[in-house]
């Protein structure tokens, strides 16, 4: 299924996902069914994933997130946008983020 995502939209973490930091690992734990075929699945975010998640929680648009990451990592926005969109599509497909 194709997931449409708009760069100017704001997406926020779903209330049905709990984020927890356990011993230095940042994990997302779905608490409702339907986010993964495996009802026991959890998701571990790396450092960049976590940065994006925190920015989503602050209700920033994708464009803003990409621009901030581009500055933080001194990396071309185009490449960052591609990765961010891929990540967010994955989260959106699983309903782990919702449109604000």
């Amino acid at each position: 299924m194709k997931t449409n995502i708009s760069i100017d939209k704001i997406y926020v973490p779903s209330k049905d996902v709990v984020s927890r930091e356990v011993q230095g690992e940042f994990i997302l734990i779905p608490i409702v069914s339907g986010m993964d075929k495996n009802k026991e699945a959890i998701f571990t975010l790396n450092e960049t994933g976590r940065l994006i998640w925190d920015k989503l929680a602050k209700k920033k648009s994708i464009r803003k997130i990409v621009s901030e990451l581009s500055l933080e990592f001194a990396s071309p926005a185009r490449k960052i946008q591609e990765n961010v969109l891929g990540f967010l599509k994955e989260l959106l497909k699983r309903k782990m983020i919702v449109s604000s």
Partner: peptide, 10 residues
């Protein structure tokens, strides 16, 4: 998962 930012496990 199709993203380098996230890995799936149990």
């Amino acid at each position: 998962m199709d993203s380098p930012y996230v890995s799936r496990s149990t």
